[in-house]
């Protein structure tokens, strides 16, 4: 039970943080509107449910909507700020406020409900466990492997890696870094919106739902640096710590475990897990 809790908690953390990491890894920009994109994704699920369509359709819709809005954001807001990373944090935070208010104006402040993607429990090793959490574990693996493929197996991935390693050199080699950035931002935000849909069976959907996830994701990404492998390790370690603290000490302490542990890890080893 404890092991399943740890694995699935880590999986949910990974799903939520992956999009943020994609953007931070390549662009070295912290997208503080990350929470807003989770929210956008979740509201895509609400729209799909409202239209009476199959709830699974929300996944591609969220990816498209999130990516498209991400593209617009990259072009108008993030692009002028690549040289001012701290200002980028602020501008995206401001954007998060704006998105939150727009959603509020459109859908109202109320908690929205979406039909569950999967419900019920299954027996694993004799324990009945939430089916959806196990599904989330699978989804996390798929996203992780998908990124591994994207980075290692495609042209875009290779150019992105070049940009991560040495941007000036990449430019010198004729890589259009502007395009790589745009593509990365679109994929990162699309993925975040997708994660928003995946969260809906676990949480309520309301205009501020994203903020609760933002800090945890942010801290994990700080620790992970620019590597998805490191992110997976970080999610397992800190997600595990959170579950253990919550189970055996106090859920309240568990809630701040990730943030505090990440800060301490960064203090001791400024590069976090990126070296691993």
């Amino acid at each position: 039970m404890l092991i399943l809790d740890i694995l699935t908690t880590a999986a949910v953390l990974f799903i939520v943080s992956a999009g943020l990491l994609a953007i931070f890894g390549v662009l070295k920009i912290i997208n503080f509107a990350h929470g807003a994109w989770l929210t956008i994704g979740a509201y895509c699920a609400v729209i799909v449910a409202g239209l009476g369509l199959n709830p699974w359709l929300a996944l591609p819709l969220a990816f498209l909507v999130g990516g498209a809005l991400g593209g617009v954001t990259e072009h108008f807001i993030v692009r002028p700020l690549y040289q001012r990373p701290l200002d980028a944090i602020l501008a995206t935070w401001g954007l998060g406020i704006v998105v939150g208010q727009l959603i509020t104006l459109w859908f109202g402040r109320d908690v929205q409900f979406t039909p569950g993607l999967l419900s019920g429990t299954v027996d694993v090793f004799g324990i009945s466990y939430s089916l959806y959490r196990l599904f989330a574990l699978g989804a996390a693996v798929v996203i992780g492997l998908g990124f591994a493929f994207l980075l290692e197996g495609t042209r875009l991935g290779l150019t992105a890696q070049a940009v991560i390693m040495n941007e000036t050199l990449a430019k010198g080699l004729g890589i259009d870094t502007g395009k790589v950035r745009l593509a990365t931002f679109v994929i990162g935000t699309g993925l975040t919106a997708l994660a928003g849909v995946l969260l809906t069976p676990l949480t309520s959907v309301d205009p501020t739902m994203g903020v609760a996830w933002l800090i945890g994701a942010f801290m994990l990404v700080m620790v992970a640096g620019s590597s998805f492998g490191a992110l997976a390790v970080a999610c397992l370690v800190f997600g595990g710590a959170q579950v253990i603290v919550s189970t055996f000490v106090s859920p309240i302490l568990g809630g701040i475990t990730v943030a505090v542990l990440c800060a301490l890890v960064l203090r001791i080893s400024p590069k976090g897990f990126a070296r691993a």
Binding site: I30, L86, I215, F218, M222, A259, C262, A263, R267
Partner: peptide
């Protein structure tokens, strides 16, 4: 500088 910001959030 980013780390200081991180701490100031925590």
């Amino acid at each position: 500088p980013l780390y200081a910001t991180v701490v100031s959030l925590v």
